[in-house]
Amino acid sequence: MAAPALTDTHDAPAPVPQAPPGRTRRSLSDWLDRTAAPYAYVTPFFAVFAAFGLYPLLYTGWISLHRVELQTPDRREWVGLGNYTEMLVDDRFWNALWNTFTIGVISTVPQLLMALGLAHLLNYKLRGSAFFRVAVLTPHATSVAAGTLVFSLMFGRDFGMINWLLDLVGVHPVDWESGHWTSQIAIGSIVTWRWTGYNALVYLAAMQSVPTDLYEASAIDGASRWQQFRKVTIPSLRPTILFTVVVSTIGATQLFGEPLLFGGTAGARGGTDGQYQTLGVLLYQQGWALFHFGRAAAIAWAMFLILILIAAVNALVSRRLRRA
């Protein structure tokens, strides 16, 4: 969330200078305090991460080289890269990867564009602007589970509210859940609903910290409001936009709760035909519905590699942007 991730890790403030030498009695404990204490302060983070982040990460890699089933966890059969080769020839993996991508685009692109627009509007002086800010943020307080349950009811084929509204304007009812694109649009709209307001506030904050003189200067040059938005606001927001893109992309790669719950009894399949099965759901299905832990682990590593790829691309892009 904090835009700095992409900006100023290098210009850290000057550290505390060493105390003047020559003070004797407390020097040992002082010395300890200066050399050891900082490590002690960062230890909790690294300790917990090592136990519950790093260890599972490596162990997942190890498991992915075995055939392991939930019913018989102590019976492990070495299969080498078998789970990976099997995954790579499985249509469902590619289907899930592609779905993850398309649902990601459907849920991210309109979301960020709308957030930008909303932020722009929220930046105006307006009656009730405080209310609007809270209102657009409220969906964010709703959990994925609760939000998805409401939306799946509204997207119902026979008795859903959305089909009823469509019917009012003469559009035939849509079988949202079983269609390929319709189900992905429905799921994307849940994500968009929950995140647009939040991102709008992040953009709004960034807009408000754009120095006034930039606008004044462009106003003197005779720029219109739209030109100001394009020439001043957007470039100033670039790091923030990039940051929200990265966060949304990571979120989209891990998308899980919305498709799982949207599908009701077909959730773990990602729909009858897997039409909205994402990588996260596929992992869940293999591991916790079919009890194939080795395969689930292989999918997990595939997801990790994809994220690293995204990070690399992001690093390249942001470096170019910074140079530009």
């Binding site: 890790t9 850290a12 983070f45 690294f46 982040g53 599972p56 990460l57 990571i250 996260g280």
Partner: peptide, 23 residues
Amino acid sequence: RSLLLMLVIGTMMVPPQLGVVPL
């Protein structure tokens, strides 16, 4: 210090799904 800080930021990349099986 800066190396450790980079590490902290790097861990944000690890998806929560990754460790669930061994966890």
